[in-house]
Nucleic acid binder design. Sequence first.
DNA 1: TCACTTATATCCATTTGACATATATCTAGT
DNA 2: ACTAGATATATGTCAAATGGATATAAGTGA
Lengths: 219, 219
Amino acid sequence: MPQAYDPADFPPLAVTVDLVLMTVRDGRLAVLLQRRSDGPHKGGWALPGGFVGVDESLDDAAQRILAGKAGLTGGWLEQLYSFGSPDRDPRMRVVTIAYFALLPAGELLAALDERDDLIIAPAGPGETLPPLAFDHEEILDHAIRRLRGKLAYAPVAFALLPPVFTLRALQDVHEAILGTRLNKPAFRRRMLDTGWIEGTGEREEGGAFRPAELFRAKI
Amino acid sequence: MPQAYDPADFPPLAVTVDLVLMTVRDGRLAVLLQRRSDGPHKGGWALPGGFVGVDESLDDAAQRILAGKAGLTGGWLEQLYSFGSPDRDPRMRVVTIAYFALLPAGELLAALDERDDLIIAPAGPGETLPPLAFDHEEILDHAIRRLRGKLAYAPVAFALLPPVFTLRALQDVHEAILGTRLNKPAFRRRMLDTGWIEGTGEREEGGAFRPAELFRAKI
DNA sequence: TCACTTATATCCATTTGACATATATCTAGT
DNA sequence: ACTAGATATATGTCAAATGGATATAAGTGA
């Protein structure tokens, strides 16, 4: 780095990435929480996170933290919002870039079965979460609002489903996120009109009723 | 700060706030640019910005930079997105939290008449900007997209108008931002239906035609 | 045949674009 | 002074598109 600044020229701030990893399990919106092993709120629950490396982009840091917790790289990952109140961490000044990740419940559970410091806590409309460390409740609140807002105009729901799914399963995901019931024919019509999905020709098996067609997300 | 970290424990990153201050002048979307007095891209154009103080929130830093450039506190100010590629500043690692600000052209011009290092450059759909320093073109791009997206569901346009305005002026702002022409009766109906505006009973004066009613933004 | 769920068809209220018409003001000409 | 014309605001109407609600058909296992 030519012409490097003298470190005294700028205020020394720590920069972290915090991850809001959400899923839909059993028809309920849920979020990944990690038990704090030390520091403030030791033993309490927090969003997973970590420092940003000097030669690492923000997106790369988020990917690294996601891979470290869940062992996975798929799904959806996007930057959410940055939080930087001077007193959000009692030890020092920390600015955190919050990220927003989505994974199917199956993949997340499979990757987590050996980690006893991680839980998937229901976080939907009527659910009560354990108290979270720092300002993580505010961060989670932002994430849920972003997810709800994006649902109508971005193909986020497919990141919460296996590659092949029924329209009923897709609707269940939407209802879990929005916390409301949706009209089935209208939902079907709207989803087909988006052009986000296409039929596979295959049908669901095993039910004691008319089998539903299986769809996959286009693109 | 009890239990302060050893500074060696975390990577030393600089955190700045960059400001995308936009307005609509003469029916064209425009952005405030500042000539760089030194450092990389010296003499070129950049978004105004500055370091975040150790005891200053991100929002406070953005307010401070806005007040420093424009001498104003009104309008609209919200966090946009954070940018942190390792090589975005050749001197050192800088993570910047971009903010997005809106002011009426009149107020901005009045506050700027003694500053020769600041310009208001047209930035609408068909306009060509001068090349910008660092990754500021990408930041500006994000800001314009955010503004367009918010126009339909958030009362942002009023931050670009004086306290009292005609529906024609409001439509001009929308058209400048979207880069398209809008249907007048439909626009009027839609705006009145949002509940964002109310008539003052007063009328515009001076035109050689039927005077338009003056409205103000509710709330 | 029944129970159950998916899939589709139909109806209706609401929204939105497009066009036409009425209204209000100033200017120009007599 | 009065009137006709030009111009932009304001409003009304109609058709197309959208979205919710209900009813009906279709497919499967018990």
